[in-house]
Design a protein around this nucleic acid. Structure first.
Length: 792
DNA sequence: AATCAATGTTTTTTT
DNA sequence: AACATTGATT
């Protein structure tokens, strides 16, 4: 009976998961021990992981053939199961209940994802399959999981308490500067960005300042080590953590406090890591510690898509996994469901040139497809115009959706030329990444107020806003205050009480009063209210107007947007305190915010940002030596080149139907024209897969330099942002262009391509204003307001 | 202390 | 070319 039960069980489960291929099913049914899932691009990785977790929650180890006959299973049950199995149907609730065996409680599952967005998506999808209790899982990025752990435990480390704030890279840089100065070095010899780089990579490797000093074999490195030491000391004094420290300190916690480790490792019966190829040493140690309790560790990744080596990711983590865990199960997902075989062949051929990789080869059952298009262009503007023309052809002539198109590039700076071309052709687009909302001055200032309110020890934030808006507290005063604080061993904020110089005392005193007032309000109110109060109390609107009318409006709009963001978190995620809000905002990146899918726009982004995404049509711009592969200096190592090649591989495998490559003979870089050869990666694609277009005409010649040119002011903010433009251009003072919101029905406008027309409809959204225009020559069209010029 | 012109620096990719 | 930082000037 047990044999038949197990057979039926197996059959039924295979039925339930029969939308997965054999390898995917194997991945789903393997939950014990160490497992490596090598998931190639487009191989259905996320679906597999979602089903794997759902399976654990629903059935536990039901698939384990050695399990004994569950209670309550009798001949009737078997008959019922037989009927389902013979009918080829998935088990119903009754059977599901019978074949459950040690179901896994969601709160015993820990899953790391690369982005918050991925975490949210996965959570939702698991809940859809396994039910609402899936919400009890711990799922998030390394940083958010670690912060969660640290909030409860950080006071074990002297100096820290649970109100700690997180420093972003800019804050960290400011802190490094302070340290450099305090040690009597200057910023020319020790560039803050460089020093921060050393500190960051040390932390990726879990190196302390002392470790760093031990290996320092030059005077310069020794000094950097001292800066590192001071930096760490100050972080602690300020009750602050940088991004890397979040991970390092958690590892330290788990290492130095066995009770904490045992508790957490005991809690997490199953540990799952997505994007394992992008983990670093510190994260590796973290994973090991957390999975040490039950030994059920499943890592998912693709060594060919490891593209974060520059930030410390160690590709050897995934390459050596099999060697490190001798008894592990290895499952390869090599069937690709995304791209045509032309695209896959090209990708396979390119990546074959890498030596440091796991053997595998993507394949698809879908044969053929369009060849890869390759264009040679004059310069970056010609290239951009060519891309715009192609997109126009696709979307106007062939009725494809703009949202099916992505333009990828190696570096953000390349987006400018492309934007210009898209605007000129009235193609709607959005940019992912680039200028970030939280990097804007007015936002950073406001957030600094929040930080200092939550954590009075945060001198970096205090220094940022002590004279914002201007209140006559200058550098010398701040220096004095800082010195005094160091002497007395208190925070700068507390040191205010010890200043006795008359004039300064008054100014600082009233600042302190203001601080107290804000603090009282903000600790008793919701974040959105708090932000609103600060804006009003500081009278920011008027302050901004003092500095310039035009900027004032956009700044205020950005601040309003911050209020809505806070309100949204409050409503959606149940955020109630300023502290929680800060955590969200610092750990959330632009790509994390879920897009509304309804906006039909072309997507522009870096290849890094495109990882994990797919588009029907993909354009890759700038396929030139020096640009891509990006050559930083002469002595670029082979491993760096391999990472560039993986990046190229990632770009190719984003495309479902058609891939278009282009390179420019010359390109403006660093303010000068540079000439490059076509990328070596182009040569690595077999010629039979490529259609090299003969250069018919330079797209630039038609319509750019002569006509009016768009003022280069409209950098569209990335979506999450939903934020307004950074600062309004000074140019718009001089020129006559109307503000984006100022069009109304009946206005006469001119378009560089379509000529003169009349506005028939105005559609303003957060991101852009779309005008419906009746053109004299070509009828009604929808045009982004930026692309037209008002007449009269 | 605040403002403005001159100078220097940057552009890889991001949690 | 665009931007941030520095130094000189008020």
């Amino acid at each position: 009976m047990i044999t038949e039960f197990n057979d039926l069980k197996r059959k039924l489960l295979e039925t339930e998961f029969n939308h997965l291929n054999d390898m995917q099913q194997k991945a789903v049914f393997t939950s014990k021990g160490h497992t490596l899932i090598l998931a190639g691009a487009g191989s259905g990785k996320t679906t597999t992981v979602v089903n794997k977790i759902a399976y654990m929650i629903k059935y536990g180890n039901a698939y384990d053939p050695s399990s004994s006959l569950p209670k309550g299973v009798d001949e009737n049950t078997l008959a019922y199961m037989r009927a389902f199995a013979d009918g080829g149907m998935a088990p119903d609730d009754f059977i599901a209940e019978k074949i459950r065996h040690n179901p896994v409680k969601p709160y015993n599952i820990l899953a790391f994802t690369f982005t918050n967005k991925a975490a949210n998506e996965m959570k939702e999808r698991i809940a859809a399959v396994a039910g609402a209790e899936a919400a009890d899982m711990w799922i998030g990025t390394f940083h958010s999981i670690c912060v969660k752990i640290l909030r409860r435990n950080i006071d074990k480390f002297f100096g820290y308490n649970s109100n700690f704030v997180i420093y972003d890279t800019a804050d960290a840089k400011t802190l490094v500067k302070t340290c450099i100065h305090q040690l009597g070095f200057n910023e020319k010899d020790y560039k803050p960005a460089d020093v921060l780089g050393y500190i960051g990579s040390a932390k990726d490797k879990l190196m302390s300042p002392d470790d760093f000093l031990e290996t320092a074999d030059s005077y310069r490195l020794e000094n950097i080590g001292r800066i590192f030491q001071l930096y760490q000391q100050k972080l602690r004094e300020y009750n602050a953590l940088d991004f890397d420290e979040i991970i390092c300190l958690t590892v330290k916690l788990l290492t130095e406090y066995p009770d904490v480790r045992e508790k957490l490792a005991g809690k997490f019966h199953y540990v799952l890591v997505d994007e394992y190829q992008d983990t670093n040493k510190a994260q590796y140690e973290l994973i090991s510690a957390l999975a040490s309790g039950h030994g059920n560790l499943c890592v998912v990744g693709d060594d060919d898509q490891s593209i974060y080596g520059w930030r410390g990711a160690d590709i050897q983590n995934i390459i050596d996994f099999e060697d490190n865990y001798k008894n592990c199960t290895v499952i390869k997902l090599e069937q690709n469901y995304r791209s045509t075989s032309i695209i896959l062949d090209a990708a396979n051929e390119v990546i074959r040139n890498n030596t440091n990789r796991k053997d595998k080869k993507l394949w698809t059952s879908a044969p053929g497809g369009d060849k890869i298009a390759l264009y040679e262009r004059d310069d970056e503007r010609d290239e951009a115009n060519g891309i715009a023309a192609d997109i126009e052809k696709l979307c106007l002539d062939e009725a494809q959706q703009y949202s099916d198109v992505a333009v990828l590039y190696r570096t953000h700076t390349q987006s400018r030329a492309i934007e210009d071309a898209l605007i000129k052709n009235a193609i709607p687009y959005r940019i992912v990444g680039g200028l970030k909302f939280y990097d804007r001055k007015e936002i950073k200032d406001l957030v600094a107020y929040l930080k200092i309110i939550v954590n009075p020890a945060d001198n970096i934030s205090l220094k940022r806003i002590i004279n914002v808006p201007k209140r006559g507290i200058g550098d010398s005063t701040v220096e004095k205050l800082e010195q005094l604080a160091t002497e007395k061993g208190v925070s700068m904020l507390d040191a205010i009480a010890d200043i006795d110089d008359g004039k300064t005392k008054t100014k600082l005193g009233s600042f302190y009063e203001l601080y107290e007032k804000l603090k009282n309000f903000c600790s008793a109110n919701l974040p959105s209210k708090a932000i609103d109060e600060i804006i009003n109390e500081l009278n920011l609107q008027e302050e901004y107007i003092k500095e310039g009318e035009i900027e004032a409006q956009t700044r205020m709009e950005n601040l309003e947007e911050l209020i809505s963001v806070a309100a949204e978190y409050e409503e959606k995620d149940g955020i109630t305190t300023v502290s929680e809000f800060l955590e969200y905002t610092t750990l959330m990146t632009d790509t994390d915010v879920t897009e509304e899918d309804d906006d039909n726009t072309v997507t522009l982004m870096t290849i890094h940002a495109a990882k994990g995404l797919e588009f029907t049509y993909v354009f890759l711009a700038g396929c030139e030596e020096e640009v891509f592969p990006k050559i930083v200096d002469e002595e670029d190592t082979e491993s760096e080149l391999e990472e560039e090649r993986r990046l190229f591989y990632v770009a190719l495998t984003r495309a479902k139907k058609k891939m278009t490559l282009s390179y420019a003979n010359s390109r403006m870089m660093y303010g000068r024209t540079q000439y490059h050869f076509p990328s070596r990666f182009i040569d690595e694609i077999p010629a039979r897969l490529v259609d090299k277009e003969v250069k018919e005409k330079a797209y630039t010649s038609g319509y750019s330099s002569s006509g009016f040119t768009m003022p280069d002011i409209y950098s569209k903010p990335s979506k999450p942002a939903q934020f307004k433009y950074n600062t309004m251009p000074k140019q718009s003072l001089k020129t006559d262009y109307k503000d984006k919101t100022s069009y109304s029905v009946g206005d006469k406008v001119s378009h560089v391509k379509f000529g003169v027309g009349t506005v028939a409809e105005v559609n303003a959204s957060d991101a852009m204003t779309v005008l419906t225009i009746d053109f004299e020559t070509c009828g009604r069209k929808n045009i982004v307001s930026k692309a037209v010029k008002p007449l009269e």
